[in-house]
Design a protein around this nucleic acid. Structure first.
Length: 563
RNA sequence: UGGGGAAUAGUGUAAUGGCAGCACGACUGACUCUGGCUCAGUUAGUCGGGGUUCGAAUCCCUGUUCCCCAGCCA
């Protein structure tokens, strides 16, 4: 499997890892980690990182840790820890016994900070947050030294310990590294190492009153765990000199940080904050709304783990800004579901068909193939009777050119059943078509004419008497614009929300075999698309989400004809 | 305007001094009991300008554009 990825085809990170193995840089070891902060739900962008880190470990015979970077108690909750674990597992990755928490290293991090103070490389700051900002300078102007920068080591030691012991209020002091207030890299202008936070931590409770900042914590977490390749997103590139500086001050293992560009997807947002707004302001029905790019949303929508893993593989890894086309994700899910989904006939917008010459009370069972892509999937029996439903848009009274479906006087095939010919159109007083009448040819049972006669169209159908009623939810993109952030002056992304992103079809007719499907089961409704049983389903009501439609050549032709 | 990254078909990505390739999309056509799948084909690209070289997407110079950084967030 590893052989398939020849060196030339590897992304730049895998090339680095391969080279490090070749040169025995880390004694041939590979250790990566996926380090989420438990402050929100994972989305498809995180999946890229998960697959990168776990994927590299798997391909190179290494290990990948799942580590919660829980250094900010005011934002983090156990609920997120659980959802993240579930999502990573669902994607198909296994951290085995390597489930770690940054909070488990708090004592060690604290001890290292004391060590830094002893070296004269850190000091207790008493400037306020606002003053620190003023002293920091700007992008173009250097900062200036804090008046507390040169206080004696003993005093720093004493103050820091008392910070830890909770003697000072939040925000009154910080511990800062003594680096260079004139550095062109602002991250090096005496960055804060610890802040005082009297907060309840979801794992350590009230034990700590000081909490480490990202830069201090993250490198040490990597170091403690023996991570070799610390893979993160581009916005941390400016932090790498600090990551390195911290680890260089201490006699510890020093991993290599490598940055890649985060995923952007057309017609969606990836920012946790903005996704949260969608939820909180009611634009969607929760984090697992099938329109959300969260993994829980995609799961409920019907995406398979394999399709998402394949997607992450196909998009590649790079260092430059790019936006992947939504259609690529849809391609990946169709590709997987085509091979794996059982076929079912389901009529979304029913049109009643009476077959005049079919016996009144007869019901017969016809054999249907469960999955033409998978002979092992077998066949099933589908009931047929005098009254059936077909799709409203499979019938046109005055069909345009290239319309191969049913029309007055025209013969089509009912899939796996019979050829039928439309003899009459039934209309309501307002002229609306409420049903049609047909005759069938008994000789075509199963769907083939013994005289070799051909039909242009094959329709799916459901026998009225045996049909299962269902609600079907159809989705479009959540935003009308490829880039949801593309807004007029004064507007924001919510102004680009697609008002038609959800369409609920309340009385759909599905063939009876779906009756006992469990939530999250995936099926293909032939000619309609891939669907997934929504957890909203109960014994009285089946609910399906459309994961993605089938490719629809007829829709394209129609579009062109309209022009 | 300081610093750090980066620019290859419409989109995403390969090629690491030696034939610019792949995937998605779009468009033809074949096949078809899913207007699906599959198959065959078409389309279209190295940010601009100089240079080095037998040869440059790749090296050098220069210009342009885009992204990130001034949290006691990660």
């Amino acid at each position: 499997m590893t052989d398939e990825k020849t060196n030339e085809k590897r992304d730049f990170i895998r090339q680095i890892v391969a080279e490090d193995i070749r040169t025995s840089k880390w004694d041939g070891e590979v250790c990566t980690r996926f380090p989420p902060e438990p402050n929100g739900y994972l989305h498809i962008g995180h999946a890229k990182s998960v697959c990168l880190n776990f994927g590299i470990a798997a391909e190179f015979g290494g290990k990948c840790n799942l580590r919660f970077d829980d250094t900010n108690p005011v934002k983090e909750e156990p609920e997120y820890v659980e959802s993240i674990k579930e999502d990573v597992r669902w994607l198909g990755w296994d951290w085995e016994d390597r489930l770690y928490f940054a909070s488990d290293y708090f004592q060690q991090m604290y001890d290292y900070a004391v060590e830094l103070i002893k070296q004269g490389k850190a000091y207790v700051e008493e400037l306020s947050a606002e003053q620190i900002r003023e002293y920091r300078g700007t992008l173009t102007d250097p900062g200036k030294n804090s008046p507390w920068r040169d206080r004696p080591i003993e005093e720093n030691l004493d103050l820091f310990e008392r910070m830890k012991n909770g003697e000072f209020p939040d925000g009154s002091k910080t511990l800062r590294a003594k680096i260079d207030m004139a550095s062109p890299n602002i991250n090096l202008r005496d960055p804060v190492i610890y802040r005082i936070l009297h907060a309840e931590h979801h794992r350590t409770g009230r034990k700590w009153c000081v909490y480490p900042m990202y830069d201090w914590a993250h490198g040490l977490e990597d170091s403690i765990e023996g991570v070799t390749h610390s893979i993160c997103t581009m916005e941390f590139e400016n932090h790498r000199p600090l990551y390195d500086w911290y680890l260089d001050q201490l006699p510890v293992h020093h991993p290599q940080q490598i940055e890649f560009a985060r995923l952007n997807l057309s017609y969606t947002l990836m920012s946790k904050r903005k996704l949260q707004r969608l939820v909180q302001e009611g634009y969607v029905n929760g984090w697992d709304d099938p329109r959300m790019p969260t993994l829980s949303g995609l799961r409920r929508r019907g995406y398979s783990p394999a399709s998402i893993r394949n997607f992450c593989d196909v998009i590649g890894v790079n260092k430059f800004y790019s936006t992947v086309d939504m259609q690529l994700l849809e391609h990946c899910v169709r590709q997987d579901l085509n091979k794996t989904s059982p076929r079912v006939m389901g009529v979304l917008k029913p049109l009643k068909v009476v077959i005049e010459n079919y016996p009144q009370d007869k019901v017969e069972y016809l054999e249907a193939v469960n999955n033409p892509e998978d002979p092992g999937a077998g066949t099933r029996q589908v009931p047929f009777s005098r009254v059936i439903y077909i799709e409203q848009n499979d019938f046109m009274e005055e069909p345009p050119k290239k319309f191969f479906r049913l029309a007055p006087g025209r013969e089509v095939r009912l899939r796996y059943a019979y050829f039928v010919t439309c003899t009459d159109v039934v209309k309501a007083d307002n002229g609306e078509i409420i049903g049609i009448r047909c005759t069938y040819d008994p000789a075509t049972r199963g769907g083939d004419a013994p005289d070799g006669r051909k039909v242009k169209g094959t329709l799916h159908w459901v026998s009225a008497e045996q049909a299962v009623d269902a609600e079907v939810r159809l989705y479009e993109t959540l935003f009308t614009k490829e880039n949801p952030e593309d807004v007029a002056e004064g507007d924001d992304f919510t102004d680009n929300i697609n008002p038609n992103s959800l369409e609920v079809l309340a009385d759909c007719k599905i063939e009876p075999c779906v009756k006992d499907l469990k939530p999250l089961s995936r099926v293909q409704f032939e000619r309609n698309g891939y669907f997934c049983v929504d957890p909203d389903s109960d014994e009285n009501r089946l609910v399906f989400n459309r994961t993605v439609s089938l490719k629809d050549t007829w829709a394209k032709i129609q579009k062109k004809q309209k022009k």
